[in-house]
Protein backbone atom coordinates (compact mmCIF):
# COMPACT_ATOMS: atom_id res chain seq x y z
CA UNK A 1 0.00 0.00 0.00
CA UNK A 2 2.75 2.47 0.95
CA UNK A 3 4.78 1.45 -2.10
CA UNK A 4 1.76 1.97 -4.27
CA UNK A 5 1.13 5.33 -2.66
CA UNK A 6 4.74 6.42 -3.15
CA UNK A 7 4.53 5.34 -6.80
CA UNK A 8 1.33 7.36 -7.24
CA UNK A 9 2.95 10.42 -5.75
CA UNK A 10 6.04 9.96 -7.96
CA UNK A 11 3.90 9.70 -11.07
CA UNK A 12 1.97 12.83 -10.05
CA UNK A 13 5.20 14.78 -9.53
CA UNK A 14 6.63 13.70 -12.88
CA UNK A 15 3.38 14.56 -14.66
CA UNK A 16 3.32 17.92 -12.94
CA UNK A 17 6.92 18.69 -13.92
CA UNK A 18 6.38 17.65 -17.54
CA UNK A 19 3.18 19.64 -17.99
CA UNK A 20 4.87 22.84 -19.25
CA UNK A 21 6.30 20.87 -22.18
CA UNK A 22 3.12 18.96 -22.88
CA UNK A 23 0.34 21.50 -22.49
CA UNK A 24 -0.15 24.68 -24.54
CA UNK A 25 1.21 27.89 -23.09
CA UNK A 26 -2.16 29.47 -22.30
CA UNK A 27 -3.14 26.45 -20.24
CA UNK A 28 0.06 26.83 -18.21
CA UNK A 29 -0.84 30.50 -17.80
CA UNK A 30 -4.16 29.44 -16.28
CA UNK A 31 -2.35 26.91 -14.10
CA UNK A 32 -0.22 29.74 -12.72
CA UNK A 33 -3.37 31.64 -11.72
CA UNK A 34 -4.78 28.44 -10.25
CA UNK A 35 -1.63 28.12 -8.12
CA UNK A 36 -1.87 31.71 -6.94
CA UNK A 37 -5.59 31.36 -6.17
CA UNK A 38 -4.93 28.10 -4.32
CA UNK A 39 -2.71 29.99 -1.89
CA UNK A 40 -5.20 32.80 -1.29
CA UNK A 41 -8.11 30.33 -1.24
CA UNK A 42 -6.33 28.13 1.29
CA UNK A 43 -6.49 31.04 3.72
CA UNK A 44 -10.24 31.37 3.17
CA UNK A 45 -10.82 27.61 3.28
CA UNK A 46 -9.13 26.91 6.57
CA UNK A 47 -10.81 29.88 8.26
CA UNK A 48 -14.13 28.44 7.18
CA UNK A 49 -13.28 24.77 7.69
CA UNK A 50 -11.39 24.99 10.97
CA UNK A 51 -12.94 28.05 12.62
CA UNK A 52 -16.31 28.38 10.90
CA UNK A 53 -15.48 31.95 9.84
CA UNK A 54 -16.83 33.16 6.49
CA UNK A 55 -14.45 35.81 5.21
CA UNK A 56 -14.98 38.12 2.27
CA UNK A 57 -11.99 40.28 3.21
CA UNK A 58 -9.33 38.19 1.48
CA UNK A 59 -9.31 40.57 -1.52
CA UNK A 60 -7.93 43.28 0.78
CA UNK A 61 -4.88 41.29 1.83
CA UNK A 62 -4.42 40.02 -1.71
CA UNK A 63 -4.37 43.69 -2.75
CA UNK A 64 -1.92 44.69 -0.01
CA UNK A 65 0.49 41.98 -1.14
CA UNK A 66 0.22 43.07 -4.76
CA UNK A 67 0.56 46.80 -4.07
CA UNK A 68 3.48 46.16 -1.77
CA UNK A 69 5.37 44.55 -4.65
CA UNK A 70 4.25 47.29 -7.04
CA UNK A 71 5.37 50.02 -4.68
CA UNK A 72 8.63 48.63 -3.32
CA UNK A 73 9.87 46.88 -6.49
CA UNK A 74 8.53 49.04 -9.32
CA UNK A 75 8.59 52.46 -7.63
CA UNK A 76 11.46 52.14 -5.12
CA UNK A 77 13.57 49.51 -6.88
CA UNK A 78 13.95 47.32 -3.80
CA UNK A 79 14.54 43.58 -4.17
CA UNK A 80 11.52 41.33 -4.40
CA UNK A 81 11.87 39.42 -1.07
CA UNK A 82 11.83 42.74 0.81
CA UNK A 83 8.58 43.73 -0.90
CA UNK A 84 6.92 40.36 -0.36
CA UNK A 85 7.89 40.26 3.32
CA UNK A 86 6.83 43.86 3.81
CA UNK A 87 3.42 43.02 2.33
CA UNK A 88 2.99 39.93 4.49
CA UNK A 89 4.07 41.84 7.61
CA UNK A 90 1.74 44.75 6.84
CA UNK A 91 -1.12 42.35 6.23
CA UNK A 92 -0.44 40.63 9.54
CA UNK A 93 -0.46 43.94 11.39
CA UNK A 94 -3.68 45.09 9.73
CA UNK A 95 -5.33 41.70 10.23
CA UNK A 96 -4.46 41.83 13.94
CA UNK A 97 -5.71 45.38 14.38
CA UNK A 98 -8.93 44.76 12.47
CA UNK A 99 -9.45 41.16 13.48
CA UNK A 100 -9.26 41.82 17.21
CA UNK A 101 -12.54 43.79 17.38
CA UNK A 102 -14.30 42.26 14.38
CA UNK A 103 -13.78 38.61 15.33
CA UNK A 104 -15.90 39.15 18.42
CA UNK A 105 -18.79 38.94 15.99
CA UNK A 106 -20.10 35.63 14.75
CA UNK A 107 -22.32 34.13 12.06
CA UNK A 108 -23.78 36.44 9.46
CA UNK A 109 -22.65 39.52 11.40
CA UNK A 110 -19.07 38.44 10.91
CA UNK A 111 -19.65 37.72 7.22
CA UNK A 112 -21.13 41.20 6.80
CA UNK A 113 -18.25 42.77 8.72
CA UNK A 114 -15.70 41.12 6.42
CA UNK A 115 -17.74 42.29 3.43
CA UNK A 116 -17.58 45.81 4.87
CA UNK A 117 -13.79 45.45 5.21
CA UNK A 118 -13.55 44.40 1.57
CA UNK A 119 -15.51 47.49 0.51
CA UNK A 120 -13.35 49.77 2.68
CA UNK A 121 -10.19 48.21 1.27
CA UNK A 122 -11.36 48.65 -2.30
CA UNK A 123 -12.25 52.31 -1.76
CA UNK A 124 -8.90 53.03 -0.13
CA UNK A 125 -7.03 51.32 -2.97
CA UNK A 126 -8.94 53.59 -5.33
CA UNK A 127 -8.58 56.79 -3.32
CA UNK A 128 -4.90 56.51 -2.42
CA UNK A 129 -3.83 56.77 -6.03
CA UNK A 130 -0.48 58.35 -5.08
CA UNK A 131 0.35 54.92 -3.70
CA UNK A 132 -1.69 52.53 -5.82
CA UNK A 133 -2.03 54.29 -9.16
CA UNK A 134 -5.83 54.18 -8.68
CA UNK A 135 -7.78 53.24 -11.80
CA UNK A 136 -4.73 53.62 -14.05
CA UNK A 137 -2.75 51.10 -12.04
CA UNK A 138 1.00 50.55 -11.81
CA UNK A 139 2.87 48.85 -14.62
CA UNK A 140 6.43 47.74 -15.18
CA UNK A 141 6.70 45.53 -12.11
CA UNK A 142 9.88 43.45 -12.56
CA UNK A 143 9.72 39.68 -12.96
CA UNK A 144 11.23 37.58 -10.20
CA UNK A 145 14.92 36.95 -10.78
CA UNK A 146 15.89 33.60 -9.27
CA UNK A 147 19.71 33.58 -9.20
CA UNK A 148 19.91 34.83 -12.75
CA UNK A 149 16.89 32.92 -14.04
CA UNK A 150 14.18 35.48 -14.85
CA UNK A 151 10.70 34.07 -14.31
CA UNK A 152 9.21 35.81 -17.33
CA UNK A 153 7.22 32.99 -18.93
CA UNK A 154 4.17 31.08 -17.70
CA UNK A 155 6.16 27.84 -17.80
CA UNK A 156 8.88 29.11 -15.47
CA UNK A 157 6.40 30.76 -13.14
CA UNK A 158 4.35 27.59 -13.04
CA UNK A 159 7.36 25.61 -11.87
CA UNK A 160 8.02 28.30 -9.25
CA UNK A 161 4.54 28.89 -7.85
CA UNK A 162 3.24 25.34 -7.44
CA UNK A 163 6.01 24.10 -5.10
CA UNK A 164 5.18 27.09 -2.89
CA UNK A 165 1.49 26.23 -2.98
CA UNK A 166 2.13 22.56 -2.19
CA UNK A 167 4.51 23.43 0.65
CA UNK A 168 1.83 25.68 2.16
CA UNK A 169 -0.79 22.95 1.77
CA UNK A 170 1.55 20.55 3.57
CA UNK A 171 2.17 23.05 6.39
CA UNK A 172 -1.56 23.51 6.67
CA UNK A 173 -2.08 19.76 6.84
CA UNK A 174 0.38 19.60 9.73
CA UNK A 175 -1.34 22.46 11.51
CA UNK A 176 -4.72 20.78 11.26
CA UNK A 177 -3.35 17.60 12.80
CA UNK A 178 -1.49 19.37 15.60
CA UNK A 179 -2.72 20.24 19.09
CA UNK A 180 -3.73 23.68 17.82
CA UNK A 181 -5.75 22.03 15.10
CA UNK A 182 -7.67 20.06 17.69
CA UNK A 183 -8.30 23.19 19.68
CA UNK A 184 -9.57 24.86 16.52
CA UNK A 185 -12.03 22.12 15.75
CA UNK A 186 -13.18 22.06 19.34
CA UNK A 187 -13.80 25.79 19.05
CA UNK A 188 -15.80 25.29 15.86
CA UNK A 189 -17.89 22.34 16.96
CA UNK A 190 -18.33 23.01 20.67
CA UNK A 191 -17.38 26.57 21.58
CA UNK A 192 -18.61 26.25 25.19
CA UNK A 193 -16.55 23.10 25.76
CA UNK A 194 -13.50 24.78 24.30
CA UNK A 195 -13.99 27.65 26.72
CA UNK A 196 -14.18 25.23 29.64
CA UNK A 197 -10.92 23.67 28.50
CA UNK A 198 -9.33 27.11 28.82
CA UNK A 199 -8.85 27.58 25.09
CA UNK A 200 -8.72 31.32 24.43
CA UNK A 201 -11.02 31.08 21.43
CA UNK A 202 -10.90 34.76 20.56
CA UNK A 203 -7.12 34.84 20.50
CA UNK A 204 -7.02 31.65 18.47
CA UNK A 205 -9.47 33.09 15.95
CA UNK A 206 -7.41 36.26 15.57
CA UNK A 207 -4.27 34.18 15.06
CA UNK A 208 -5.94 32.15 12.34
CA UNK A 209 -7.30 35.30 10.70
CA UNK A 210 -3.78 36.75 10.64
CA UNK A 211 -2.43 33.54 9.14
CA UNK A 212 -5.12 33.61 6.49
CA UNK A 213 -4.33 37.26 5.70
CA UNK A 214 -0.63 36.44 5.32
CA UNK A 215 -1.49 33.76 2.77
CA UNK A 216 -3.67 36.24 0.90
CA UNK A 217 -0.88 38.79 0.87
CA UNK A 218 1.68 36.27 -0.39
CA UNK A 219 -0.69 35.27 -3.19
CA UNK A 220 -1.17 38.95 -4.10
CA UNK A 221 2.60 39.47 -4.28
CA UNK A 222 3.00 36.44 -6.52
CA UNK A 223 0.18 37.78 -8.69
CA UNK A 224 1.84 41.17 -9.09
CA UNK A 225 5.19 39.63 -10.04
CA UNK A 226 3.50 37.43 -12.61
CA UNK A 227 1.16 39.91 -14.32
CA UNK A 228 3.72 42.76 -13.81
CA UNK A 229 0.80 45.16 -13.61
CA UNK A 230 -1.67 45.91 -10.83
CA UNK A 231 -4.81 48.03 -10.76
CA UNK A 232 -7.70 48.42 -8.40
CA UNK A 233 -10.04 46.32 -10.60
CA UNK A 234 -8.24 43.15 -9.51
CA UNK A 235 -9.06 43.70 -5.82
CA UNK A 236 -12.80 44.31 -5.84
CA UNK A 237 -15.60 42.41 -4.10
CA UNK A 238 -15.94 39.89 -6.89
CA UNK A 239 -12.37 38.74 -6.25
CA UNK A 240 -13.27 38.12 -2.59
CA UNK A 241 -16.38 36.24 -3.70
CA UNK A 242 -14.35 34.08 -6.06
CA UNK A 243 -11.93 33.15 -3.25
CA UNK A 244 -14.87 32.10 -1.09
CA UNK A 245 -16.37 30.29 -4.06
CA UNK A 246 -13.24 28.25 -4.68
CA UNK A 247 -12.93 27.35 -1.01
CA UNK A 248 -16.50 26.13 -0.65
CA UNK A 249 -16.53 24.49 -4.06
CA UNK A 250 -13.36 22.58 -3.33
CA UNK A 251 -14.58 21.59 0.09
CA UNK A 252 -13.26 23.18 3.24
CA UNK A 253 -12.65 20.04 5.26
CA UNK A 254 -9.97 18.59 3.02
CA UNK A 255 -6.54 20.10 2.48
CA UNK A 256 -6.35 19.73 -1.28
CA UNK A 257 -9.98 20.74 -1.89
CA UNK A 258 -8.98 24.27 -2.70
CA UNK A 259 -6.62 23.09 -5.45
CA UNK A 260 -9.60 21.58 -7.23
CA UNK A 261 -11.67 24.68 -6.46
CA UNK A 262 -8.97 26.93 -7.90
CA UNK A 263 -8.64 24.82 -11.04
CA UNK A 264 -12.42 24.95 -11.47
CA UNK A 265 -12.71 28.74 -11.27
CA UNK A 266 -9.71 29.47 -13.50
CA UNK A 267 -9.89 26.81 -16.21
CA UNK A 268 -13.63 26.24 -16.46
CA UNK A 269 -14.63 29.76 -17.62
CA UNK A 270 -11.78 29.90 -20.16
CA UNK A 271 -12.66 26.49 -21.50
CA UNK A 272 -16.36 27.36 -21.70
CA UNK A 273 -15.75 30.71 -23.40
CA UNK A 274 -15.41 28.78 -26.67
CA UNK A 275 -19.18 28.28 -26.48
CA UNK A 276 -19.74 31.97 -27.22
CA UNK A 277 -22.06 34.30 -25.36
CA UNK A 278 -23.86 31.52 -23.51
CA UNK A 279 -20.66 30.52 -21.64
CA UNK A 280 -21.42 32.60 -18.54
CA UNK A 281 -24.69 30.73 -18.11
CA UNK A 282 -23.06 27.34 -18.65
CA UNK A 283 -20.50 28.16 -15.96
CA UNK A 284 -23.25 29.15 -13.53
CA UNK A 285 -25.18 25.99 -14.38
CA UNK A 286 -22.07 23.88 -13.80
CA UNK A 287 -21.61 25.59 -10.46
CA UNK A 288 -25.22 24.93 -9.45
CA UNK A 289 -25.02 21.30 -10.55
CA UNK A 290 -21.81 20.81 -8.58
CA UNK A 291 -23.32 22.27 -5.43
CA UNK A 292 -26.46 20.15 -5.65
CA UNK A 293 -24.69 16.91 -6.59
CA UNK A 294 -21.66 17.36 -4.32
CA UNK A 295 -22.81 19.38 -1.30
CA UNK A 296 -19.47 18.81 0.48
CA UNK A 297 -17.45 20.12 -2.45
CA UNK A 298 -15.08 18.26 -4.71
CA UNK A 299 -12.68 17.48 -1.89
CA UNK A 300 -15.39 16.01 0.34
CA UNK A 301 -16.87 13.93 -2.47
CA UNK A 302 -13.48 12.51 -3.48
CA UNK A 303 -12.65 11.68 0.12
CA UNK A 304 -15.96 9.89 0.53
CA UNK A 305 -15.41 7.93 -2.65
CA UNK A 306 -11.85 7.05 -1.58
CA UNK A 307 -13.00 5.81 1.82
CA UNK A 308 -15.88 3.84 0.32
CA UNK A 309 -13.41 2.19 -2.03
CA UNK A 310 -11.01 1.40 0.79
CA UNK A 311 -13.69 -0.18 3.00
CA UNK A 312 -15.07 -2.01 -0.02
CA UNK A 313 -11.68 -3.55 -0.64
CA UNK A 314 -11.24 -4.43 3.01
CA UNK A 315 -14.54 -6.31 3.17
CA UNK A 316 -13.65 -8.19 0.01
CA UNK A 317 -10.29 -9.49 1.22
Amino acid sequence: MTVKRAALIAIAVVLWACLPWLAPRYLIDLMVFAGIYTIAGLGVAFLLGQCGIVTLAQSVFYGIGAYSVAYFCAQKGLPSPVAVIAGVALSAVIATAVGWPVLRLSGYFLALATLALAIIGHVLFLEWDWLTGGTLGIGGIPHIDLFGLVLNSPQRYYLFVWPIAVALLWLHHNLVHSRNGLALRAMRDAPEAALVLAVDTHKLKVQMFVLSAMLGSLAGSLFAHYVTFVSVDSFAIDRAISFLLLAVLGGVYTVWGCVIGALFITIMPQWLSKLGDIHAFVFAAALIATVILLPEGFGGALQKWWRARATGRRTQS
Binding site: L48, V54, I241, L245, V248, L249, V252, A280, F281, F283, A284, A285, L287, I288, V291, I292, P295, E296
Partner: peptide, 13 residues
Protein backbone atom coordinates in the same frame (compact mmCIF):
# COMPACT_ATOMS: atom_id res chain seq x y z
CA UNK B 1 -22.37 27.24 3.06
CA UNK B 2 -23.77 25.16 0.24
CA UNK B 3 -27.04 27.12 0.22
CA UNK B 4 -25.04 30.33 0.00
CA UNK B 5 -23.07 28.89 -2.90
CA UNK B 6 -26.20 27.55 -4.59
CA UNK B 7 -28.00 30.88 -4.48
CA UNK B 8 -24.83 32.63 -5.62
CA UNK B 9 -24.74 30.22 -8.57
CA UNK B 10 -28.39 30.99 -9.35
CA UNK B 11 -27.56 34.71 -9.20
CA UNK B 12 -24.80 34.20 -11.78
CA UNK B 13 -27.14 32.13 -13.92
Amino acid sequence: DSYLLLTLGIAFA
